[in-house]
């Protein structure tokens, strides 16, 4: 499905995505401060050491060592079943909700181990928001969707103002300002997904995790959400799972390539092959398997 990105074309695509700034028009500052320091030298938000996941005893992912840096977009790419979504769900303890899921290894979030017993998963998810593959607005009004997070977390002061700011931040305000009390399910798919991003932003998280946020959307909505992701890195750390390599090339500062290891008994287990700056992953990967994937020789 993904055409082979030629080296030259790819890097121009990346340049142009950086230059595309409808953000200025939205009153969002451009990516100046964040761009100044190289990604690898920014603060480490997640330091993952030997992370693995088992579902009811079956290993789905093993030995992931990965650092995720602040104010950048990190993309997780790889073939189906490579554990990239599973890994993403470890970062805000979403796997806790799946009966039989067990996470091993250690994930340090700003130096604090996420899976130590004293850590409360709810506290984790307040700081690490999530956007899902399929837009999942609540069957409530647009207003109540955004207000949900602040309400459950007791951030009820200046709620109207917070909702307006959040919707502006998600580039949705102009489209919905006259129908805030209408049902969110009346929005288009792309609008719904931006609403879900706005909903995640409303609780002022530190990190936004996105699990294939554009896979159910048309190209125009996808482009709007990619612009949004780029603008978010001023204030947030973004981790995105995508099966679309061009998308990773367009939005990500860092890219991690996951793949599947076939065990001798026929079991399949996800592994991290390499992580690097996006341009290096796509132009000069260190591993043969990465190269095979990004050039389309392996699906």
């Amino acid at each position: 499905m993904d055409p082979t990105p030629s080296t030259a074309a790819d890097s121009t695509a990346m340049e142009s995505s950086r230059d595309r700034t409808p953000l200025g028009a939205l009153g969002v500052a451009e990516r100046t401060q964040a761009d100044a320091t190289p990604v690898e030298e920014r603060d480490v938000v997640f330091d993952c050491q030997q992370v693995g996941v088992r579902y009811s005893g079956t290993r789905a992912l093993r030995d992931v060592d990965l650092k995720i840096h602040s104010n950048a977009v990190t993309a997780l790419i790889g073939p189906s079943g490579c554990g990239k979504s599973t890994f993403l769900r470890c970062l805000n303890r979403m796997n806790d909700l799946i009966p039989g899921a067990a996470v091993d290894g250690q994930i340090f979030y700003h130096g604090e181990e996420l899976y130590q017993p004293q850590v409360d998963a709810i506290e984790v998810r307040k700081r690490i928001g999530m956007v899902f593959q399929k837009p999942n607005p609540f069957p409530k009004s647009i207003y109540d969707n955004i207000a949900f997070g602040p309400r459950v977390l007791g951030m009820k002061k200046d709620l109207d103002e917070r909702i307006e700011q959040t919707l502006r931040r998600a580039a949705l305000w102009d489209e919905v300002k006259d129908r805030l009390k209408e049902g969110a399910l009346g929005l288009s798919g792309g609008q719904q997904q931006r609403l879900c991003i706005a909903r995640a932003l409303a609780v002022e998280p530190d990190v936004i995790l996105m699990d294939e946020p554009c896979s159910a959307l048309d190209p125009i909505s996808t482009s709007a959400i990619e612009d949004l992701m780029l603008s978010l890195t001023n204030d947030y750390t973004v981790v995105i799972v995508t099966h679309n390599m061009q998308q990773a090339a367009r939005v990500a500062d860092m890219t991690a390539f996951f793949s599947v290891d076939q065990g001798e008994t026929g079991t399949r287990c996800g592994v991290l092959i390499e992580v690097d700056r996006t341009e290096r992953i796509f132009t000069n990967p260190a591993h043969e398997r990465t190269e095979a994937y990004v050039t389309g020789r392996f699906g």
Binding site: I122, G129, N136, C196
Partner: peptide, 9 residues
Amino acid sequence: EGSFGLGAN
């Protein structure tokens, strides 16, 4: 999941 993801209990 959407609501758990927002820190709801």
